[in-house]
Design a protein around this nucleic acid. Structure first.
Lengths: 208, 208
DNA sequence: AGTTATTTATACTATACAGTATAAATAATA
DNA sequence: TATTATTTATACTGTATAGTATAAATAACT
């Protein structure tokens, strides 16, 4: 039977997703019971199943919603008029966005746990979204052509950049439960300066 | 009743720990059943309980055994005769040790998951062991005094170093399930070079 | 060989949870 | 107001698992 006319279910759907995120975060996937999720969402258990069918599906919906956000971040293209630092900070901020609100850092933490538990699933899931490295690689290529970046291995260089951002900011935020701007900003400057010290074409010094 | 004489239980204990690690790694803490652990260890379930009392205790024993290994790594002191690179690689290798065998990378991965799930527990547990940063901080202080390192913030500098090592090597190893020397070595050189480019006192260049 | 610490096999208890069933209640639309 | 898509409350099924009980078996030490 095709419903005569379907009504707006988005409110309940959002409430369920929100409650589920809370419970997943606080209990972990295994210990998050569908009863608890329904209660937290202020919804009957049957409604949860009507919307998502299974715990697994509910989880997938959360993951997809979250990763879709990342996808929608605007692209960054090389601009010879702007300083390297300014442009690199834009790349870093695209990562920092993922841990930039209490909610997002919770979800990132949960996702990291799940991805660590099943790295094959992690790989398959992340593969559905545009690779983060590619945008930086394209940027680096342009910057190198413009003589502002010096490297003999673009991929290694990109990996060093993300190592700095993730190692200094993202992962610490997951463990500390969040970031505070006043602590992140000096660190962000420091890692950008570190990157530029290695790969920037500093025309103001010369070998003696 | 005090036992007349206790016998050597270390063999069974080791078998249980080993089996438990296998099961924890493959199923995660929650889904690792004590029946499965006993079976994997080749031991009766009652013996598991005789040795460890509870699943929680068994888990704690694994964590403590693993972290105790790290503690036993030898200290690294500043040596003015050696190059910065050579000495920094020793620091990096102390980290790489933790992901340097298939077994250790599995345990590190599992521990990272558990620590992410309960960061308060993580903090308390890690606090029981010597802080990793302290040794590098002492080294940096000496290197700075010796004029080989230039920085106005030792702590930030240490954090950049570990960000590079963890972001470029440790975390990627957790997700990829291990490291292969031929891929790690170029990356290790690259991050050491990056660190030195920023903080090394390069007397061979001068501002013009 | 005899003592006894340790281990084993089997069965059991109590609890929790994913998912289903059913019938009644609610609320949006016509 | 009548229709019906959606939601709710309650109870249920089947399965899984942490931990315990008990008595028999094993093996290290004297």
């Amino acid at each position: 039977m095709i419903p005569f006319k379907s009504r707006d279910k988005s409110k309940k759907r959002a409430a369920i997703l929100n409650g589920a995120i809370d419970v997943f975060i606080n209990m972990g996937y295994e210990l998050a019971s569908m009863d608890k999720i329904a209660e937290t969402a202020g919804v009957s258990k049957r409604t949860v199943y009507n919307h998502f069918g299974s715990k697994e599906n509910l989880f997938q919906a959360i993951v997809n919603d979250f990763l879709a956000q990342r996808q929608s971040l605007k692209t960054i293209t090389y601009d010879p008029e702007k300083s390297l630092e300014e442009q690199l900070i834009a790349f870093a901020n695209a990562e920092i966005f993922l841990i930039d609100s209490p909610r997002r850092v919770q979800i990132s933490k949960f996702l990291t746990m799940v991805f660590l538990k099943d790295t094959a699933y992690a790989k398959a899931t992340v593969a559905k979204y545009p690779p983060v490295y590619d945008m930086l690689l394209a940027w680096l290529k342009e910057a190198e052509k413009d003589g502002k970046i010096i490297t003999d291995n673009l991929l290694l260089t990109a990996r060093v950049f993300y190592a700095l951002v993730e190692g200094a900011i993202t992962y610490p935020a997951l463990f500390s439960g969040g970031i505070n701007k006043s602590a992140v900003e000096p660190m962000l400057e420091e890692i950008i300066a570190t990157f530029v010290a290695k790969y920037g074409n500093d025309k103001n010094t010369v070998e003696i």
